[in-house]
């Protein structure tokens, strides 16, 4: 069973969001997502200053045999990116909720947070996905 910190919010497409006190939020991919992708070999980051809209593609995570888009959970401006991932993409595997964060965004509309999944809802979703798989 993968780890799902209760203080985070999630997208159905497996991104997590951690809201800070200053109106910004960190974005990464969940423990479940990193484990499904396997060893990451590259993370394509957005650029600081990019303005992105909720639901847009904001980057890509690549393993040897798969590539997956990272969608933007919120609208806003990218204020920081995790440059350590350029040389060490494996941080997303080893610490998906900490050193493996991907970018930080200044929220334009905090109400968008309401559209995201809670930790419990996200846990239910991945359980359902696992059940579907078992039926194959």
């Amino acid at each position: 069973m993968s780890e799902i910190p209760s203080e985070l919010r999630f997208m159905a497409s497996h991104e997590w969001i951690r809201v800070e006190n200053d109106g910004t939020a960190y974005v990464g991919i969940s423990d479940h997502a990193q484990s499904a992708l396997g060893d990451l070999v590259y993370v394509e980051l957005p650029e600081v200053g990019d303005t992105i809209t909720a639901g847009d593609e904001a980057g890509v995570v690549e393993s040897v045999k798969a590539a997956s888009d990272i969608y933007a959970p919120l609208t806003g401006e990218v204020v920081a990116i995790n440059e350590a991932l350029n040389d060490n993409p494996e941080l997303v595997n080893s610490d998906p909720y900490g050193d493996g964060w991907i970018y930080r965004i200044r929220m334009a509309d905090p109400e968008e947070l309401e559209d995201l999944l809670s930790a419990e809802e996200y846990a239910e979703q991945i359980e359902e996905e696992a059940d579907d798989q078992a039926e194959d």
Binding site: V64, K65, A66, A67, D69
Partner: peptide, 12 residues
């Protein structure tokens, strides 16, 4: 670098 290629990235 196969993740750039059509058999993985398909339309992208």
């Amino acid at each position: 670098l196969q993740a750039r290629e059509q058999h993985i990235r398909r339309s992208k």
